[in-house]
Each structure stands twice: as structure tokens, then as C-alpha cells.
Amino acid sequence: MDIEPFMLRALLTALFLGPLCGFIGVFVTARRMSFFSDTVAHAALAGVALGFWLGLPDPTLPMILFSLLIAGLILWLKERTALLNDTIMALLLSGSVALGMVILSLLRGHRGELDRYLFGDILSVGWGDAVLAFIVLVSVGSILFWKLNALALLTAHADLAHVSGIPVRWLNYGFVALLTVTVALSIRLLGIILVTSLVVIPPAAARNLARSLRQQILMSLFLGLIGAVGGVAISYPLNLPSGPCITLTLAGLFVLSLFGGRLQRPIRNLS
């Protein structure tokens, strides 16, 4: 069977980004940053709109840059104001979606492209995206492994991490930047609305099965890979957008993990 070039690009991108989202997701869920991930994803809509407005042929770069800008704004507002995290993120999420919609409405011609950014579209994945996904997998993946001790300790207790000589503030900034780039890039496959599922469901399912952090990371990597590649693979013959296909595959894996997890003794009742 011949694989269409666009299908090959989409499958490769899924192969690169699925495990990476699964890996980084272990720390996103444990650090309660799912909503943060959702916010920077929605910010990408304004990036897409700005890209079209500036007449750029490919909106990947403005998407990543605008998401990074919003991520930076979240951190800045958190440090400078007394506002709660949730409030700051809800404000920036709705603000960037509104900005994106207004620009797209004014541009008129691009309204039809909205769906592919909201729900993902394998046809929109170019060779540039696949190459970028590979570069991000290698670089973000190695940084995460290199800083695994520090990240795990930061997740367990920020002050303890500081006392252990970890530059907590910079590590946090770095983690946010890596997460934002990974999420913004994954929008091509999953769309803005569903991209967080690839970051949240694999580690949640892995948690049901794993008995250690090491196992949770490895299983999350694997489940992210299966969900992303599997979702892309079924989206084409069924002629469905890739985002919902990936998310439903992941949801199926999560349900299976619940059954697998029942065989193990629950840990909560020990506390």
C-alpha cells in the first residue's frame, strides 16, 4: 500500500510529537498545569490570525511566538499582581480567542480555515512542520531528561528544590517555554480545542498502570505515541478531522488503563 505524502508527513509528525507530549505531560498533570496548557493553546489562535494578517504563507511561527508571549504574560501577571492563576489564565484565554476571531473576521477570506486550526487537519501538516516536530522532539526531550532530577524535585516541593541548589525560577521559565513550543506545534494535528488531551490523557492513563515515576514516564511516552499515530491513521480513511480521532483514541486507552489499574492495589487508602 502506498502512503500519500501528506499522510506520511502527518504520521511522522504524530510519531515525533505524541511521545514528547506524553513525556512533558507527566509533569504538566503533576504540577496542575493542564489549564495553562489549554491557555497557551488558545493563544495560538490569535497567532494564526496575526500570521494571516501579515500575509505569511505558514502561520506556525506566529503561532509559537504568540503562545510564548501569552505564557510570558501569565508568569508576569502572576508575579506582579495578586490575581489568582485561574483568573489570569481565563482572562488571557478568552482575550486571545477574541482577538483571533476579530482579526479572522476582518480578513474574511480565512474564516473557512478556522476549523482546521480548531480541530486539527492532517492536510495542513507540511514537511516544515514534520522537520520542526523532529527538532523539537530531540531538543525538548533531551532537555527534559537532562533536567529530570531537578524537575521531579520541583514538582515535589519548590522550596526543597531551591534549598537543593536548583535555580527554581529559571527552571520554571524553561519548563513553561518547552511546554508552550510543544503544545503550539501539536495544534497542527489536534487543533486548539483538543491539543491538551495529548498532554493530559497519556500521563493520567499511565498513572493507573505505573508503579513508579520511571514506569509512568515510559508508559506515558508509549501511550502518547499510540494515541497520536493511531488517531492520525484512522482519521484519513474515515474522513474525519485528526484532533477528535486522536483524543478519542486516547480516551479509549484511558478506559483500558482503568481496567488494567483495577488489578493493582490502590495507593490512596494507605494514606
Binding site: V26, T29, A30, R31, R32, L148, N149, A152, L153, T155, A156, H157, A158, L160, S164, P203, A204, A206, R207, A210, R211, S212, L213, R214, Q215, Q216, I267, R268
Partner: peptide, 18 residues
Amino acid sequence: LQLDPSFMLTVREFLAIR
């Protein structure tokens, strides 16, 4: 610890990451 139950860090791993 501010540890979330969704993080499967074991005691051995916690000691090793120090």
C-alpha cells in the same frame, strides 16, 4: 510535600533525585 497523587514518584526515586 505539595505532591499530587497523579505523580507516581516512589520513595526510592525521591531519594535518588536529590
